[in-house]
Design a binder for these strands. Structure first.
Lengths: 210, 210, 210, 210
DNA sequence: CATGAATGAGATTTCATTCAT
DNA sequence: CATGAATGAAATCTCATTCAT
């Protein structure tokens, strides 16, 4: 038996958990199933994580880290490639985020429970929006995540972040229910997103910055 | 002991379930607790509903019916009271919907689960949007819920329905996390909603109707 | 609503119970399922039968009555049609009994439980064997069902009655397991039955009667 | 508490299940009772066996193995002790099998259920008959359990295996019902069995082998 | 790091039976 | 005759977590 182990099993667990949580939800996913899917002994999970809650917390941390890393490299890329059309930018961001589709749905679900300290969604939004702001090279220096202007933040979160998240997470079920073609739906979403959120963006920015 | 007969206990169950699902989520609410809260024998629940999933499905249907009823009466009211400002209208709708806050979060959560696609959220959106369209007395006669134009539907759902739903459901946690005052936040949301969704609405309508 | 009822529902219940008991066994068949299959209100079952045990007892009584009736008419028939080949006689008896296939399997099952007063199988055997004896017009007058010669009875029951019962009840599963054709299997069984049981029959009869 | 490790508790469960199923039947034995009898935590049963059906299947397999082992050692014994009378051989086999009496009745009962056709009885017969064939040192080399001649198989199963099984399982109830003495009944059965089945055996063998 | 075995508490679901109308 | 509603008890199965090795 070659020492395949170490960090390996921790990752296997995280991946399995990500998949299963997103597919069935946190509560409906048993630790047994995670162990089975990860091809790992159940007790291993409790070696790496204090308990089931700790596991989901680790997942959230991990996804936030990944998103941060991905976004900043994307930022660099967008700078080097120079001016692309807004549509292209939104599309590429959409594609980026779709990679986290599964875990994002878990993030949303947990945020909906409200009860506990499920602030992960907000922390994630903070990061994403911070990045977006940088991308747009806005001069707005009031962007402290602690207390931005209420209106601005409302705008970013409920008109920008939430629709995009929701689209990413629900597009499949949504297309299926309405018999839409996925590519058409994506195109439509980008169009709508630009028309509603991004167009207003300029306006808001102006408003805010004057 | 109750032997009250008929629909009564079915309703008691539905009410108890609505309260408990809203408060603790679907998975965290046991059938035992529902029975206890409803003051009904546990087996009664399985007499009226095939299983726990059937119960929540019935609940969704019932809630959707209630919302529909409430909205259409609101519609009538808005017609009789004549022209109110758009802001007032949105605010009243917001308040209306807030009554279902808890159960709506359950609706959203179930929709987020990948498997067994609970379509209740979409059915709810269909009804809500149908109402909204009537409220605006649009001349658009293509509003069949079966196959609306992709773009229009995308707009209504992801720029209108979802942000409003999300705001209703998340406002408390959101305000708490960012230390916002709730009234300010509501005001901000209404403002943003008008600016992004409703303003574009006219535009989309024009686009669509020409 | 025309008065379809009365005896009707009692029979519907008996038929449904017969089918379900034979398919799933007595214990694994719930009263609910019987009511559903019989298209009858569950409480009706408790109107017609004291309880579940009473229901199966009634079933047994009914089948024994039917078998008695059928056998004696068959007896008459066989007398009028005169001499048929032994094979034909066995075959016709097989076909006769196959009509009770389902209930016979229940009879067997209950007899296997041993515990309770499941003497129905033996009572049924008594009837069937008494008839057989008459059919063969044997001169044996010692055929009191109470205390026949041990050996003779052993022979009739374990070499005659049981194999035939078992074949009737198990032939389908048996053919399926061994990939036998049903007609071939029936033919083979009749052949074997004659060769082993009936041939010895003459011998035993001789032995006994001298 | 036991924490005895490994196979031990699995066996304890199997033994408890064998006893209880035999005594009360499959359906009338609750998993709780098995756990209690086995002095094992209830969840342990579901750790070792997928569900109750899986448990009984494992039990059948285990019993069949035991029977096989016992028969082949009996085979060896019979060879070393040289020629015993046929009656003695049958008697000893009868006694052997009587050890599994209870569980065999469960085997039969399950085989009688129309649905989910448990094939355990047939598998058991296959083994038993294979052994019997060896005992008789027949020259028949066509004894593949997969596709034996229909007639031969019918003979072995319905004239040999089934009567013997049934006698083992039912003898007590049968003797009680007819007020037979058990030893007399056993004697009678052996006699009948030889006269009907074994005598024909030679005949069949001849027939088959020419 | 890794694993098989173990456990107490509790979840969902089913059952035979009864009652009021 | 017929029915919908009701119930207490119990059955099957699952869960998160721990421990000894």
């Amino acid at each position: 038996m070659p020492r395949t182990g170490g960090e390996k099993s921790r990752l296997k667990i995280l991946h399995a958990a990500e998949y299963l949580f997103s597919e069935y939800g946190f509560d409906a996913t048993s630790v047994d199933k995670i162990a089975e899917k990860a091809n790992v002994n159940k007790a291993m999970i409790y070696y790496h994580f204090k308990n089931k809650d700790d596991l989901i917390a680790a997942l959230f941390t991990s996804v936030i880290e990944q998103i941060t890393a991905a976004s900043s490299s994307a930022l660099v890329a967008s700078r080097t490639t120079g001016e692309a059309s807004i549509a292209k930018k939104v599309e590429s961001e959409l594609i980026q985020m779709t990679r986290w589709k599964k875990i994002l749905s878990v993030l949303l679900m947990e945020a909906l429970k409200g009860k506990k300290s499920s602030t992960a969604l907000f922390r994630c939004a903070d990061l994403a929006l911070a990045n977006e702001r940088e991308t747009q090279q806005s001069d707005d220096h009031t962007s402290s995540p602690i207390a931005p202007s209420v209106r601005n933040h409302t705008f970013e979160f409920f008109s920008g972040f939430i629709p995009m998240m929701t689209f990413i997470v629900m597009q499949d079920a949504w297309c299926k229910y309405y018999h839409f073609e996925k590519s058409k739906a994506t195109e439509a979403f980008i169009d709508v997103f630009i028309e509603t959120h991004l167009r207003a963006h300029r306006q808001f920015d102006t408003t805010t910055n004057i």
